[in-house]
Design a protein around this nucleic acid. Structure first.
Length: 296
DNA sequence: AGACTGACCTGAACGC
DNA sequence: TGCGTTCAGGTCAGTC
């Protein structure tokens, strides 16, 4: 569900409300939410209890909180999957229906957010999860994050290298955008919105992409995600919310995603939808014509 | 090595 | 009203 802008909204909320707090205890209510932890819930509890939460970082759709009293020694890594939420709640707030993991902070320590003493991982579909992992390298990346690409909001993102990478693939453009190893953070919504802005069809063969087209696409991706972030992210329903449970409103600015049969904001042609990778693709057939099959 | 297909879940919306 | 089908912001293991 959440893509880069939604995850960044959550990151900012956590940075504001949990940095500096110490974990008093941890309760794992669903085993699937800790399935990435080799030692299961017991290991997560063991490695998290007593730790101090430090900087909150993000790459693509992965989010993590550095742990340790001095340098980061480990990280609490979160992926929200399709329906995950991280909420900062008072301990006396009733449990959410899909509460999967509860992290309780030490309520006695002096802290601006004393009184909101729980971090809750809520996840209807359980595709997401939390893990405590080792960190690696000079930039202290969690091990599972080390293999994914930088995202277009990363100050060190290398757009020229990413364009080169796209052109070296032998697949369709949208499939390549959704593969997190080349460029991370883009999911189904922002892939369609980026392609619409760049006037490129989702099945355009990556091998035929020109460098200027590739630059245009990645610039469009960064711009649309910047705008979505400024609007607090995209929420169609109550599944995507920030740490306070509030929705973003970028859904009102979507040009094509979810807009089947509605006029393209640029040319008025009805937006089309087609099945794609067990979900949907939306595009404007005028602005983004289907690529002509190459002659054999 | 790289490309592609399901499987993994819960719940809402829809058609009959 | 129910009961089946389809669809949903994502990965990942397994196959060719």
């Amino acid at each position: 569900m959440p893509e880069l802008p939604e995850v960044e909204v959550v990151r900012r909320g956590l940075a504001d409300h949990v940095t500096g707090r110490r974990v008093r205890d941890v309760e794992v209510l669903h085993p699937r939410s800790v399935r990435r932890q080799a030692g299961g819930g017991a290991e997560l509890v063991e490695r998290l209890t007593g730790q101090r939460l430090r900087a909150v970082r993000r790459r693509g759709k992965y989010l993590w909180v550095e742990l340790g009293d001095d340098a980061p020694e480990a990280a609490l890594l979160a992926h929200l999957g399709m329906s995950g939420q991280l909420l900062v709640q008072p301990a006396d707030r009733p449990d959410e229906k899909h509460l999967r993991i509860r992290v309780r902070f030490d309520p006695s320590e002096e802290h601006a957010d004393r009184g909101r003493d729980e971090l809750r991982f809520v996840d209807q579909r359980t595709f997401g999860g939390l893990t405590v992992t080792d960190v690696t390298g000079a930039d202290a990346l969690p091990v599972p994050v080390a293999h994914i690409g930088r995202d277009p909001m990363d100050p060190v993102f290398d757009a020229e290298a990413a364009v080169g990478g796209l052109r070296r693939r032998r697949t369709g453009l949208k499939r390549a955008l959704l593969d997190q190893t080349l460029v991370s953070g883009i999911g189904n919504i922002y892939a369609d919105e980026s392609l619409w802005r760049a006037k490129l069809h989702y099945e355009r063969p990556t091998a035929t992409l020109t460098r200027p087209e590739g630059r245009r696409l990645l610039t469009a991706a960064r711009e649309v995600m910047d705008e979505a972030l400024a609007a607090g992210g995209t929420s169609f329903d109550a599944l995507y919310v920030d740490v306070h449970g509030d929705s973003g409103y970028f859904d009102r600015a979507l040009a094509v995603y979810g807009q089947e049969d509605r006029p393209c904001p640029r040319c008025g042609t009805p937006v089309r939808r087609a099945p794609f990778m067990n979900r949907s693709s939306y595009w404007c057939p005028t602005c983004q014509p289907r690529p002509r099959r190459r002659h054999p």
